[in-house]
Computed example of a mutant assay.
Amino acid sequence: MSHTAHIRSHRKPRNRSASTIAMRAGVAGGVLSTLAVAGASASANAAEPVTQTLELPTLTADMATQVAQSAEATQQAAANYQLQAERDAAAAKAAKQAKADLAEAKKKEAEAQRKAEAARKKAAAASRSAERTVLSAASSAGTSTSTSTATGSAAAVIAFVKAQLGDAYVSGSTGPNSWDCSGLVQTAFKQIGVSLPRVSQDQSTAGTQVSLSNLQPGDILYWGGAGSAYHVAVYVGDGMFVGAQNPSSGVVEKPLSYDPPTGAVRVL
C-alpha cells in the first residue's frame, strides 16, 4: 500500500439548502442598501446647512415711549444725585469754616477778657497805691478819716456786721451763719429798713459817692470801679472795716491799710 494513498474523510459534507443561501443573501443586500441610504442622507445634510429663524418682538410706539421715559428718568436721577452730592459737599465745607471761625472768635474773646482782666487788676493796684498815699498823708497830718463813735442807724449797721465776725464766707450766701461780701452788707442795712441791691456792682452806686478822706461809720466801701466793683464792706470807724473777705478768712475786721478800697458810698 502506498503511503500517499488518499484516506477518505469521515466528516460529512455540509448540505446547504438553496433557501438558506437565498435568505443570507437577502439580509446582506438589505444591510448594504441601508448603509447606502444613510451615506447619501449624510452627504445631503453636509451639503445643505440648516438655518433657524428667530422671531424678535416688534418695537411698538408704546414700547419706544416707555424706553425713552425710562432713560429720561435715569438721567434725571443721576442729575439729582450729583446735585445732592454738591450740596452735601458745600454744607460740609461751610460747617468746617463755621467751626474754624467759632474757634477763632472764642480765642479772640478769651484774649480780650485776659487783657481786660489784666487792665482791671493794674487799675485796681494803681488805685490802692493812690489810696494808701492819701490815707498815709491824712494820718501824718493828724486828720481823722471818720468820727470814732457811730450813732443811730449807722450804729445798728455796725453792731450787726460785728456780730457776724468769724462767720464763714460762702459765695452767694446771705446768712445767717455764712455770707458773701454783698450778702452781708445787704442784710446789715435791711435790719434798719434800707433796701440795697444784691450784688457788689450795684451796691457801689447805691448811694452818694464820698471821699475816702471823709469817711463816716456806716459808709459802704467798695473795691474796683463804681458800677463794676468786685468787693464791698462796711466802714466801722477808726480806720477799720468789717466785711466777708474770702473763703479762707471769713468775716473779719481789718484796717483800711490792709486792703485800701477804691471808693465809698453813703446811704445813711
Rank of each mutant, 00 (worst) to 15 (best):
M1R: 10
H3M: 09
H3R: 09
H6S: 13
H10V: 14
R11W: 04
P13E: 08
R16E: 10
S17Y: 10
A18F: 00
T20C: 04
I21H: 12
I21Q: 13
G26S: 15
V27R: 14
G29T: 08
G30F: 04
L35K: 08
A36C: 07
G39Q: 02
N45M: 11
A46W: 01
A46Y: 05
T51P: 00
Q52E: 08
L54G: 09
L59H: 08
L59D: 06
D62S: 11
A64P: 01
T65V: 12
T65C: 04
Q66F: 01
A68E: 11
Q69H: 05
S70A: 11
A71N: 09
E72F: 06
E72R: 11
N80W: 09
Q84Y: 08
A85Y: 14
A90Y: 08
A90L: 10
A92N: 14
A92F: 08
K93I: 10
K96S: 14
A98Y: 02
E111V: 01
E111W: 00
E111H: 00
A112W: 09
A112E: 08
A116Q: 12
R120F: 12
A123T: 14
A123L: 09
R128K: 15
E131I: 15
V134Q: 05
S136I: 01
A137D: 06
A137M: 06
A137Q: 11
A137C: 03
A138N: 10
S140W: 07
A141Y: 12
A141E: 07
S144C: 02
S146D: 02
S148M: 02
G152V: 07
A155F: 07
K162R: 11
G166M: 06
A168L: 07
T174W: 03
G175R: 10
G175P: 12
W179N: 02
A188R: 06
A188N: 02
F189E: 00
Q191M: 07
P197G: 04
V199S: 06
Q201Y: 15
Q201R: 12
D202T: 11
S204H: 01
S204T: 12
G207A: 03
Q209L: 10
Q209T: 15
Q209N: 12
V210N: 03
L212C: 00
N214W: 07
Q216A: 08
Q216S: 08
G218S: 05
I220C: 00
I220M: 01
I220L: 05
L221V: 03
Y222F: 15
Y222H: 06
S228F: 14
S228G: 09
S228L: 07
A229M: 01
V232A: 00
V234M: 05
V236M: 03
V242T: 09
A244T: 09
N246G: 01
P247T: 07
S248P: 02
V251G: 00
V252W: 06
E253N: 00
K254E: 05
D259S: 07
P261L: 02
T262C: 01
G263N: 03
G263S: 06
R266E: 04
L268F: 11
